[in-house]
Amino acid sequence: MAKITMTVNGRQVSGTCDDRTLLVHFIRENLGLTGTHVGCDTSQCGACVIHMDGLSVKSCSILAVQAAGSSITTIEGLAKDGELHPVQAAFKAHHGLQCGFCTPGMVMTAVDMIARHGSGLDEATVRYELEGNICRCTGYHNIVKAILAAAAEMGGARQAAE
């Protein structure tokens, strides 16, 4: 058993778990944040994507103890003051989700993707960057549209702020 401490969605949390406990299970079961999902066993579907120290990672392929001391953001930590994050808002506006199961991972992936590429994202890059996220409902069409729209809007917002 390990006692671990990390920062999750801006708050410091501690918990006890087996050394073999996966980060995703620590987040879901110890912290009760069930927005992060498990959709496969082989690190391919991306339903479990969160941000660790500012980068997107698959929480099903990391032990909770590996993440001790790090700063984690989950889907629950994205909206601020009741306002959807621009990526969340774009997914809603463009119908980028159906059953919602892959959605948290898709949104966290999109936020990371936009952070790395900015508003210069194009369709081919978005599709390539989604290699690690599987959606069975949308055919990706509207997910791609939503990410491009969010990138444009966030890029625009950044420019306006500069």
């Binding site: 690190s43 991306g46 997107s56 698959k58 990391i62 993707m113 290699e131 690690g132």
Partner: peptide, 9 residues
Amino acid sequence: IGDPHVRHM
């Protein structure tokens, strides 16, 4: 290699 999340780790 892999996907963006795999490349981060």
